[in-house]
């Protein structure tokens, strides 16, 4: 699954960075603590967060993340958009809260990799 398919399936808004829509998705990470993401997210992850400032894109670039999803209808700061464009890392949005969108992403990735979810 790539970012573009994710956008379509979960009906996400594309704010910027559409150059990176073909990036493959390896997994996901949900957190609003930047050091937590810095220390624990993996390359190719989709990062789900409520943080909207420019440092989010710095972390996404340093960690080679696939995309960033802002939750609850939050809008990115102007310089966050600029950075996302410059790096070609998609900055996406949803009106859903982090829990809901994380659950959907998890299910998608699990289905995509042929895993059976048992809870």
């Amino acid at each position: 699954m790539n970012v573009s398919q994710l956008v379509e399936t979960l009906n996400l808004t594309i704010f910027s960075g559409s150059r990176g829509l073909n990036k493959p998705i390896a997994g996901g990470y949900t957190s609003d603590l930047l050091s937590d993401v810095m220390g624990n997210a993996e390359e190719g992850d989709v990062w789900i967060t409520l943080q909207t400032h420019k440092n989010v894109m710095a972390i996404a670039q340093l960690k080679d993340l696939a995309a960033v999803v802002l939750v609850k209808g939050l809008k990115p700061d102007a310089d966050t958009l600029v950075q996302s464009e410059a790096e070609g890392i998609p900055l996406l949005g949803t009106n859903e809260p982090a829990f809901d969108i994380t659950g959907k992403l998890y299910k998608l990735i699990a289905n995509d990799s042929g895993l059976t979810i048992s809870l």
């Binding site: 050091s35 937590d36 943080q51 400032h53």
Partner: peptide, 16 residues
């Protein structure tokens, strides 16, 4: 508020 200052920075530096 920006999501920094969680007290994880120095341990991230040590681990990495």
């Amino acid at each position: 508020e920006m999501g920094f200052g969680a007290g994880m920075g120095l341990s991230n530096m040590k681990k990495n």
